[in-house]
Each structure stands twice: as C-alpha cells, then as structure tokens.
Amino acid sequence: MAESVRLIIDGEHADVPRGTSVAAAILNRGTWGFRRSVEAEVRGPLCGMGTCQECRLEINGEPHQRACMAMCVDGMVVRTGRASD
C-alpha cells in the first residue's frame, strides 16, 4: 500500500495515496461538481491535463487552482463549488 497523505476537502478529512491528484481525490469521494460556471451551472473536470480550466477550485485559500494539475499533499485545504469562480 502506497504511503498516504491527509488533506481536507470541503471541511472533511480525506486520506489518499501519495501521487493522487486533487481532482482524483475529489472524484473518489463522489463529488462530481467542482465549480459553478458564470451562469451557475455545475461543472467538473474535462481535459484532465491542465488546459480546459473546468476543474478550478480553491486550494489553501487561493481561488482558480486547477485540481487536475495539483497533487495532494499533507495539510492541504481544498474547497469546491464556489459560485461564479
């Protein structure tokens, strides 16, 4: 079993194997909506490789971070679903 890291996603602890992307960690919790679009539609990851910007969310208080490009690290705080991000 790979070494695991613990982060906080939407206020709840999540333990994931090291090397897991933030996007994968969120999807694995059953959360498919990552952000709200400018017209408040719920959106989730599309391209998985950093170009489409659909998986943007807040990481450690910084908005507009790409969940597919960020790797989970210990103590990371992730927030999904902010309106009009």
Binding site: V16, S21, L27, C47, G48
Partner: peptide, 11 residues
C-alpha cells in the same frame, strides 16, 4: 484522454 489522465492520477 482526460479521463485516462485522471485515472492515472488516482481516480
């Protein structure tokens, strides 16, 4: 390809 990349990163 996006889904494959997400699975490779742990999905």
């Amino acid at each position: 390809g996006g889904l494959q990349a997400l699975v490779k990163s742990g999905f």
